[in-house]
Amino acid sequence: MPTIADDRREACAQKTTAELDALAARGVRAGGNAYSPILVAKGELTTEETGGVEPFSGADGAALRASLKALGYAPEHWEWLLTCDNAGAPLAAGLFREAMCALDPATLVCCDDAAAAAVREAYADDLTILESFEEAMLEPGYVVQVCGIRVLNLGGFAASLADPKAKQQMWARLKRLPPLAEPY
């Protein structure tokens, strides 16, 4: 016999599924675990990704999964979001913000400048109250709080994989985002 808690979980799952389906119908591409505490976003797609290959299924995804696991995130506890539509055009600010509300991450990692630009546009008013210009502009390496979400712009994660020094810099930036709860 289902309990009230089971009914609430099912209702929550149905609501999330409906929201994500509605967003997908409007051009939003997302994947992974929709109940994850960490969301990785990018807007600069590889040739394979524009051809239909799932985002983060290549070297960048493998490196991110390994990094997040090393930080203490469970392997299944991450999700991804593209800040551009299927044609490569940036998502409208309102649509991006709606996707962020539906996914409701505790932490957002912008993997490239296009993702950071989407956050700057969608959360412009919220960013203006931050103390430093670098934080307000989401300069790479700064962890900021925006509407209750930790945000970090890595600043070119995929491109850094070819350079050992740049990879170390990305790792140093990611280490600023330990899990907010106990590691798995």
Rank of each mutant, 00 (worst) to 15 (best):
G88A: 10
R65S: 14
F133Y: 10
N86I: 08
E79F: 00
M100S: 00
E98I: 04
L91A: 04
E121G: 05
G72A: 06
E76I: 11
M137A: 15
A59W: 04
L91R: 02
A102H: 00
K69F: 06
Y73L: 12
W78C: 05
K69C: 10
P75F: 05
A66P: 00
D112Y: 07
H77C: 04
A63Q: 07
W78T: 04
A99F: 00
Y73T: 05
Y73S: 08
L68A: 06
G58M: 00
E76Y: 03
L95V: 01
S132N: 10
E79N: 12
G72Y: 03
G58N: 13
E134M: 12
A114W: 00
G58R: 06
C84K: 06
A102Q: 00
Y123C: 05
A87R: 07
G52E: 12
L127P: 09
T128K: 07
G61P: 03
Y123P: 11
G51W: 11
D60P: 01
T107A: 13
D112F: 04
A92H: 07
K69P: 00
A116R: 04
A115N: 11
F96Y: 11
K69R: 13
M137K: 12
A62Q: 15
W80I: 00
E134G: 14
P55I: 07
A92C: 06
L91F: 02
L64V: 10
L95T: 03
L103K: 03
E139M: 11
E135G: 15
A102M: 08
V109A: 04
E121C: 10
D112K: 05
S67N: 07
T107W: 09
R65P: 09
A106S: 15
L127W: 02
L71I: 02
S57L: 08
E139H: 12
P140H: 05
L108M: 10
A87F: 02
T107Q: 14
A118S: 11
L82C: 12
L103V: 01
L130E: 10
F96E: 01
D112T: 04
G61I: 06
E79A: 13
P105K: 01
F96W: 07
L103W: 07
D113E: 10
V119E: 11
L103G: 01
A66F: 06
L82K: 07
S132D: 13
L91T: 01
P140R: 02
A114R: 14
T128A: 03
G51K: 13
T128Q: 06
E76Q: 09
P55T: 01
D104Q: 07
P105R: 02
C101L: 08
L103H: 03
V53G: 10
A63Y: 15
M100G: 02
A87T: 09
E98F: 01
R65A: 15
A70Q: 12
G88T: 07
L71R: 12
M100L: 15
D125C: 08
A62D: 14
G61W: 09
A92D: 11
F133R: 15
D85H: 00
D112L: 05
E134A: 15
S67T: 15
P140I: 08
D126S: 15
L64C: 04
K69I: 15
A116N: 04
